[in-house]
């Protein structure tokens, strides 16, 4: 098959799934689209050299996860102590507040590496060995991040925390600032 056609077929099929995964990783629809777009740009450049044994979608998902981590690292390393934020962003139309709000907020408090493990494990329904392979992390690391993620969610969703609501990460504050 013509590589361009091949790629087109791949994008048409995988885009919605990749976008949803990216959305779960980022919590922001616009950012998720940017993430997928950038990942696809990279994949397109390497399309004919990608190891198909891994699967193009799995490869792209890995790029998405890694890009998200690197974007977040960059964002997290700077101060975000603003005295006032006069302009309010429009609410994300794709995130109605009543939709599992507590759990969604709790997921937003997790570090990207931990959140990625939970998304891949539970949303993508991948076994831990596959998650480890995809993230290029030792299985033990994935297991511990998995356990830590659940523990943090449990703590965040404790009754007293539910009442107060978990504090969102600075990244997400700024995204909606």
């Amino acid at each position: 098959m013509d590589p361009e056609e091949d790629f087109k077929e791949f994008v048409e099929g995988a885009w919605p799934r990749l976008l949803r995964t990216a959305y779960l990783l980022t919590g922001d629809h616009h950012r998720a689209e940017d993430l997928v777009q950038t990942a696809l740009m990279r994949v397109h450049r390497r399309w004919e050299r990608i190891d198909r044994s891994m699967g193009a979608e799995a490869y792209t998902r890995r790029v998405v996860v890694n890009l998200n981590s690197s974007w977040w690292r960059r964002a997290a390393s700077r101060e975000q102590t603003w005295a006032q934020v006069p302009d309010n962003a429009a609410r994300d139309a794709h995130a109605p507040v009543e939709l599992h709000a507590d759990m969604w907020k709790a997921l937003g408090t997790l570090k990207p590496a931990v959140r990625a493990v939970l998304v891949l494990r539970y949303y993508e329904d991948l076994p831990e060995t596959e998650v480890a392979r995809l993230l290029d992390r030792p299985l033990g690391t994935v297991k511990s991040q998995h356990a830590r993620g659940l523990a943090q969610l449990r703590a965040a969703l404790a009754p007293e925390k539910r009442a107060a609501g978990p504090r969102p990460r600075p990244r997400e504050e700024s995204a909606h600032a």
């Binding site: 885009w15 919605p16 976008l19 949803r20 995964t21 959305y23 779960l24 629809h29 998720a32 689209e33 794709h94 995130a95 109605p96 939709l99 599992h100 759990m103 969604w104 997921l107 939970l118 998304v119 539970y122 949303y123 969610l153 969703l157």
Partner: peptide, 16 residues
């Protein structure tokens, strides 16, 4: 609850 949240949120996302 987490899985339900992920699916509910993800299902609401459609490419623009």
């Amino acid at each position: 609850e987490m899985v339900a949240t992920m699916h509910a949120r993800a299902d609401a996302v459609t490419p623009s």
